[in-house]
Measured scan of single mutants.
Amino acid sequence: IRCIGVSNRDFVEGMSGGTWVDVVLEHGGCVTVMAQDKPTVDIELVTTTVSNMAEVRSYCYEASISDMASDSRCPTQGEAYLDKQSDTQYVCKRTLVDRGWGNGCGLFGKGSLVTCAKFTCSKKMTGKSIQPENLEYRIMLSVHGSQHSGMIVNDTGYETDENRAKVEVTPNSPRAEATLGGFGSLGLDCEPRTGLDFSDLYYLTMNNKHWLVHKEWFHDIPLPWHAGADTGTPHWNNKEALVEFKDAHAKRQTVVVLGSQEGAVHTALAGALEAEMDGAKGKLFSGHLKCRLKMDKLRLKGVSYSLCTAAFTFTKVPAETLHGTVTVEVQYAGTDGPCKIPVQMAVDMQTLTPVGRLITANPVITESTENSKMMLELDPPFGDSYIVIGVGDKKITHHWHRSGSTIGKAFEATVRGAKRMAVLGDTAWDFGSVGGVFNSLGKGIHQIFGAAFKSLFGGMSWFSQILIGTLLVWLGLNTKNGSISLTCLALGGVMIFLSTAVSA
C-alpha cells in the first residue's frame, strides 16, 4: 500500500470489461488503480535517471590570480610587451599612462603600459546536455494484498515479495511487465516523455548541487567559461569578468580578483528545477510519464477462499488518510488461513446495510499462523458509518465519521480527471477507425466523469442509474429551450454510458 502517505494521489477506475487503462505517473504523486474483478494496485514513479550526459560548457565562479607582471614604455618608444601576453592562462590589459620627467621619461606624453596576471579557477559549475534516449524511469508497484503497516513504502525485498514489484522503462524499451506472483502480471506500455523539453534544458552542477536550467539563461551567464570537458589546462574565455584592473600608474597597475560568485548564482537559480546525482547518473524529480496498463493477466487472489471465522482485533486505531479513506490494521487469532476477511461498512448496526467501498479488493489472510496481521483500506461514505470486521458474535466494529460532501468530492474528481486527460493529450485517442474513435470517446468520458459518477451514484443499482439517464434524455427531447435540451441530452447520455461502463 504505497499511496496512503502521498498527498498527491489519483484514483483511476477501469471500465467494466476493459483490459487496459491509461494513467499519468508523476514525481511526488501516486496512482491507485481499481477495476472490477482485479486486485487494487498502487503505482508510483520513484526516480527518473539520466546517463551519458555530455559537458557543454563550464563557468568559473571563484578564481585566484598570481605571478603579476607589468612592462611600460616612454612616449615614442613603441608598445610595451610581455611574453605572458601569448599565454592563455594569463589575463592581460594594455593601456596608456601619462609619462614625463617625473617618472623617468625625457618627453612628456602618453606611454604604453601592459599588465598580466595568471588566472586560476578555484571553483566552477558545469552544464551538461541531456539526450531523451538516455532517460530511465523506475516504477514501483504494490498490490493491496496481505501486507501490514511495516511494509508500507518499503522498497527492500521486492524481489521475493509477490505484493510488490519494480520495473524500469526507457525510450528504447518502453514496454515492461511486472510479475506479482499469485496476482498474475501487469503489463506497462509507457510513452517516455517527461513533459520537459530537454532540447531547451541543461543539467547544471555547482558545488555538489544540481538544477535543470534553460539553455539561453545558461549561455548568457557573465562569467569566465570554457567549452567542452575539462582537459586539465582549460582555456578560459572572458577571464576579465572576475578580474579587475585598478587605476594605472606610470610603471605598474594593481590587479585584484573578485570574490566568489556562488551567492549571486544561487539567487539567479531561484525557482529552477532541482535535481540530484546518483553516482555518474543524474536524478530528476520533475515531469511525468504516461503509461497504458494492460490488466488482462491480472487476477484476484483468494476468490475461492472461505470466510475467516475466528476473532479479529484492531492492532491500531483506524486512521484517516490524506485522501479521506480509512486504513485499518487487524490481527487474526485463527489458524484456518488462508481465508477471506469479512469486512464491510454499514450505516447502522441493526440492518448492516453496506455503504462505501473497499479500496483493498478481496482482502485475505494468507498465513495459517496465529496472530497474522493484515492492513486494508476503505472508502467510507460522508457522515457517520460503522466499520464491521468478522462474522457472528466475534465481529468487531468501529464508529467512523467522514466530513465533507459527495458533491465536493465529485467536483474534485472531475477536475482531476480533466487534468489527466489534458496530460494524456492525443495519445488517449485513436482515429484509425470508426470503432477506435468511439472507443476513445468512451475512454475520455470515463477518465473525466467516472470518479464523479461513482461518488454521486455508486450506491444505486445499474438499472436505477439507466432509468435516471433515460429520464434526462426524455426531458431533453421534450424541452423547447435549446440549451436546457442539449444539457439534459448530454447528461442523460453520459449517465447511461457510465452506468453500463463503470464497474460497481
Rank of each mutant, 00 (worst) to 15 (best):
I139T: 07
L491A: 13
Q89E: 15
G334C: 04
H398Y: 15
D155P: 01
Q261H: 00
V24W: 10
T32S: 06
G383R: 08
V153C: 05
A176P: 01
Q331F: 09
G259E: 09
I65D: 03
S66E: 07
F411Y: 14
L300G: 00
T231N: 15
A178M: 10
V494T: 10
V330M: 12
D87Y: 03
H266E: 13
G184F: 08
K239G: 02
K38W: 07
T315M: 15
W429D: 06
S403C: 00
Q344P: 00
H226N: 07
T487M: 12
V257P: 03
G187W: 06
Q85S: 11
G458D: 11
V415Y: 11
G469F: 08
F11A: 03
T335N: 11
T170L: 02
V243H: 03
A35P: 02
H144F: 10
W236R: 11
G187E: 09
A270L: 13
G383H: 09
T321M: 10
R2V: 06
W101N: 05
K373G: 10
L45A: 03
K294F: 06
N238L: 15
G111S: 03
A176I: 06
Q344D: 05
I365T: 08
G100Y: 06
T309L: 13
I466W: 11
S464T: 13
V317E: 13
I396A: 15
Y90M: 13
D189G: 12
S199N: 02
F245I: 14
G102K: 03
H148W: 09
L293F: 11
V143T: 03
G5N: 04
G279H: 07
L498P: 13
T88K: 11
L273W: 07
S372P: 13
F108L: 10
Y137S: 02
A280M: 02
G109S: 07
Q253C: 11
G476Q: 07
T414Y: 10
G390E: 11
L475M: 14
V255K: 02
Q131Y: 05
T500D: 06
E216V: 12
C60V: 03
F119P: 06
G18T: 00
Y332F: 05
Q350K: 14
S440Y: 10
A333G: 15
Q447P: 00
H266L: 14
T479A: 14
Y137Q: 03
N52Y: 12
G417V: 05
G334T: 06
T49G: 02
D155Q: 15
T40C: 10
T40Y: 06
D247F: 09
G469S: 15
K84I: 06
I496D: 05
A311L: 14
G17E: 03
V265C: 14
L289W: 08
P380C: 09
I341E: 09
E55A: 13
I466L: 06
Q344S: 14
T366C: 07
S503P: 06
E133A: 05
K297A: 14
E377G: 13
F218W: 09
K480F: 02
G476E: 07
A311C: 08
H288N: 02
A272F: 11
Q350F: 04
N154H: 13
G302R: 01
R99C: 09
R193E: 04
I221P: 01
S64D: 04
P354K: 13
Y202G: 03
S286C: 12
N238V: 06
L269H: 12
A250S: 12
Y332V: 04
E62T: 05
G228W: 00
A451R: 03
M345S: 00
L135G: 01
Y59E: 07
N208H: 03
T427F: 12
V415L: 15
A178I: 03
V502P: 13
G459Y: 13
A264R: 14
E329S: 08
I65Q: 02
L45C: 09
C291S: 08
S385T: 05
K281T: 10
I65H: 03
L113C: 02
V494E: 11
R2G: 14
T32G: 02
H27I: 15
F463N: 04
L284R: 01
P381T: 06
D426L: 00
E244D: 12
N481E: 10
M421N: 05
A490P: 02
S405V: 01
S51R: 05
G271D: 09
F438P: 00
K166Q: 14
Y158N: 12
Q77Y: 06
R9C: 10
Q253D: 09
T406F: 14
V494C: 09
I466P: 10
V255Y: 00
R138I: 14
V355H: 07
M53G: 00
T40I: 10
E168T: 01
Q147L: 14
F198Y: 09
V434I: 14
F119I: 07
V33E: 07
A361R: 00
T156V: 06
P192D: 05
T32E: 06
N8E: 09
L25N: 08
C92G: 08
T205N: 03
P171C: 06
K166G: 13
V303M: 15
L273E: 04
G5C: 05
D71C: 05
A333L: 11
L135P: 10
D197N: 12
P75A: 03
S122M: 08
T267D: 11
A451F: 00
V143S: 02
F431K: 04
T49V: 15
A241L: 15
I387K: 03
V243G: 00
L376E: 04
L186T: 01
Q465T: 09
W217Y: 07
A176W: 12
Q350D: 03
Q447Y: 08
L352V: 11
R193V: 01
Q36I: 14
K239S: 01
H288Y: 11
G476R: 00
N52T: 01
P132I: 04
T325H: 07
E177Q: 11
F119S: 08
K443R: 14
L223E: 10
K301C: 03
S503I: 02
G392E: 06
L489T: 14
H323S: 03
G195M: 09
I4Y: 08
